[in-house]
């Protein structure tokens, strides 16, 4: 057992290291910008004196490692600095939007994960059947669609039929159920995009497994197909399935950007796109850090879970 925990500990350390490197890359990116944050805040017309004063105030004269440390420490405690385009604290800009984005991603995930796992499993079971072929072709098709295309098709089809709203106007007093209703279309868009990927990968993982000799052995023991799949295939398919799910949840993170823009949904993605257009570096950095951390953590979680599900590692010689 201890060897297993060592391995997981190592993986966690490695994950922390990755997070650190990612934060360095994101911080280092701004160092490549001509001019600095003070210049960006005050604009081209600022006098050298006011610039110098602001630099002093923001600590921009410190060496890069110190500034990195201050930035990271601030980010940890929720203080990301000040937006250069509208001079507001970034924490204020982000907080509500972070919740909205998380809500949307989770909403899509709860729809997509069970749906795609079941579809993938069925496609693998009924391999080469009509169901498998149609599911495969449609999955391949929907993978090929840009997110905004899916979104607009859904708007033309469902919103203009009057079934759902195409603009997700979230207010303070929106109830949970109203929120579910309002965000249905963006969540459905994300679901469609991610499900296709996840289904194909689940199918491939299971088919790969069904070719192994111990599955043939299980069939030759006279077990029913259901028992073969549930008892013999599934325990060994956990690791690949976990990886598939994590990979696609991570994909949701980027998929959210275009979808939020189409539905003018007040989330982080939309804010990020606006900030890129305005070249508002501190905001872009903050959002990049959040997205990238979520991505790294998801992959880390998947790795740890699939390590735990591996009997060869769980029960050492």
């Amino acid at each position: 057992m201890s060897e297993l925990w060592m391995m997981i500990g190592k993986r966690l350390l490695y994950g922390l290291l990755t997070l650190f490197i990612v934060s360095v890359i994101i911080f280092g990116a701004s160092e490549m910008l001509p001019g600095d944050q003070a210049q960006a805040l005050l604009g081209q017309s600022a006098t050298p004196e006011t610039l110098a004063a602001l630099r002093e105030q923001l600590g921009l004269n410190d060496p890069a490692p110190v500034r990195y440390w201050n930035w990271l420490a601030g980010a940890m405690s929720g203080d990301f600095g000040i937006s250069t385009s509208n001079q507001r604290p970034i924490a204020d800009l982000i907080s509500g939007r972070l919740y909205n984005t998380m809500f949307l991603a989770l909403y899509a995930a709860t729809l997509a994960v069970p749906l795609s796992l079941v579809l993938g499993l069925l496609a693998a079971l009924w391999r080469n059947s009509i169901f498998d072929r149609v599911a495969n072709a449609s999955a391949l098709t929907s993978i090929s669609f840009p997110e905004f295309f899916v979104a607009y098709i859904l708007i033309v089809w469902l919103a203009q039929g009057g079934h759902f709203t195409s603009l997700a106007r979230i207010r303070e007093n929106t109830t949970f159920v109203q929120r579910l209703d309002m965000t249905f279309l963006p969540a459905l868009t994300l679901t469609l995009v991610v499900t296709a990927h996840m289904m194909r990968m689940t199918r491939a993982a299971i088919i790969n497994l069904m070719a192994s000799p111990y599955i043939e052995m299980a069939r030759l023991k006279g077990l029913s197909p259901l028992r073969v799949v549930l008892r013999h295939a599934l325990p060994n398919a956990l690791a690949p399935i976990i990886t598939v799910v994590a990979l696609n949840l991570a994909y949701l993170i980027t998929g959210v950007v275009a979808v939020e823009v189409v539905f003018t949904y007040p989330g982080l993605g939309q804010l990020m796109v606006n900030s890129v257009a305005d070249r508002d570096m501190p905001v872009v950095q903050a959002i990049s850090l959040i997205f990238a951390s979520a991505y790294v953590l998801l992959n880390l979680l998947a790795d740890v879970l699939s390590t735990l599900s591996n009997p060869r590692l769980r029960h050492r010689r």
Binding site: S212, Y214, E216, M217, L220, H232, N236
Partner: peptide, 16 residues
């Protein structure tokens, strides 16, 4: 009717 496979290492399910 029972079956004994060539590679026992591959034919036993690693999870059980």
């Amino acid at each position: 009717i029972a079956y004994v496979a060539q590679s026992a290492a591959a034919s036993f399910n690693p999870a059980h």
